[in-house]
Computed example of a mutant assay.
Amino acid sequence: MKKAYGRGRTLLPLVSALSIAAPSFASAGELNILTWEGYADPSFIEKFEKASSCKTTSTYVGSNDDFAPKLAAGGGVYDIIVPSIDTIGLMRQAGFVEPIDTKKIEGFSDVYPEFTKANDVVAEGETWSVPLVWGSISLMYRADKVAPKPDSIGVLFDKKYAGKIAMWDDKSSIYWAARLLGFENVYDLTDEQLETVKAKLIEQKPLIRKYWATAGELTELYANQEVWLSNTWTGLQSKEVNALKKGFEVVEFTPKEKAEGWMDSMQLVKGSANTDCAYKFFSFMLSAEGQCGIVGSSGYFPVNPKVVSGCLKGEEAEAKKVNNIEFVKSLVMWQMPARLDKYLEVWNAVKAAP
């Protein structure tokens, strides 16, 4: 599900506004990473630091909407950012990142070509990101509270679960509502369709207990028995909740309207003084230690299937979709919306609604 989006258009006003400030950087050898929770776990990061002599400092984001403001704020210290596939194009358009020399990265040629050749990973004849990990976003519910067994996104809009529903605080809520409403091209909705989506999400808002920001926050909402239903990062939060043994179990499912797919990749911030460490980090994260490490800490799927045979075998390899790129094709893979500024306007209007 890949297409070019608005490549001949004037850059978004949002991009122009965010491009003004230029970040400053820490000393060489001190690699600063803006990434996701679970992507810089000491279990493998310490191995990288020992092998490379490059010190790392990681800052976590809760949404893809966090990357641009943090980079544009000035005084930034980031060398590597790890946005999702629907955001890497914006980082390039805003001038925050620079092209990647893939010849310097060990293991790059072994990554699924569906990712290394994807739109916005490759643009303007250059490669702009290094695939890291991928997965899907499914739905999750408490098996003892939600009945009958749900099979549709519609359960997130069911009034009988008012106050017990959580949604990720991200513009992707638009995609969920759009699919429920039967709109096919959820990344290029018309003004009329977006108004319908906005109305649907505002209608849902009184049912929402919380728009969650991080994996840990959603886990706590379930652990404290505040929510029974949510969308979820497949394979991560359900494992965490069930491991707490709170007397109930949560179950994931793929709705009949399909689940979303995503891929997170590493980008090199323009002007970084730490490019040597950055390229060492890219190679490490595509190696067996890096891929097994991040899969183990996050629960997501590896992008380099050739190096994970030692840590993923049998049913576990099957669950992590190793060498099952066909699964990607069954998902509604994220793309940068053709009119990102309009989508953000709609999502902000939903959150501002009473």
Rank of each mutant, 00 (worst) to 15 (best):
P305C: 13
K321F: 14
F301S: 05
P302V: 03
L312S: 03
L340P: 13
V307P: 02
L340F: 15
M336Q: 15
K321T: 13
N323G: 10
V308L: 02
E315L: 04
W334H: 12
P337A: 02
G310W: 04
P337Y: 01
S309D: 14
E345A: 14
V303I: 07
N348M: 12
S309F: 03
L331E: 08
N304Y: 03
V346S: 08
E345M: 07
K342V: 05
L340A: 05
F301P: 01
L312W: 01
K321L: 13
P337E: 01
E316G: 13
L340N: 11
V346M: 11
Y343W: 08
W334G: 12
V322Y: 04
S330Y: 00
N324T: 10
W347I: 09
K321V: 15
P305N: 12
V332F: 12
E315H: 05
Y343K: 07
L312R: 13
M336F: 08
A317N: 06
A338R: 13
L331Q: 14
N304T: 10
N348A: 12
K321I: 09
K342S: 12
I325W: 06
K321Q: 14
E318H: 01
V303R: 07
S309T: 09
A317Q: 09
E318G: 09
N323D: 15
A338K: 11
P337N: 04
G314Y: 00
V346E: 02
V332S: 09
K306H: 06
V322P: 03
F327A: 08
V346Y: 02
P302D: 04
G314C: 07
K342Y: 04
S309M: 04
F327W: 13
V303S: 06
Q335A: 15
G310R: 12
W334Y: 13
E318L: 03
L344F: 14
V322N: 05
L312E: 04
M333N: 13
P337F: 01
L331P: 04
L340T: 13
P337L: 00
K320D: 01
N323L: 05
W347F: 15
V307Y: 06
N304R: 06
P302T: 00
N323F: 15
G310C: 08
A338E: 13
K342L: 06
M336T: 15
K306T: 15
A317D: 12
F301D: 07
P302F: 06
M336G: 11
K313D: 01
A319W: 02
K320T: 07
E345N: 08
Q335R: 15
K306E: 04
F327D: 11
V303G: 12
D341Q: 10
Y343R: 08
P305M: 12
L344I: 14
K306Q: 08
W334D: 12
K320C: 00
W347R: 07
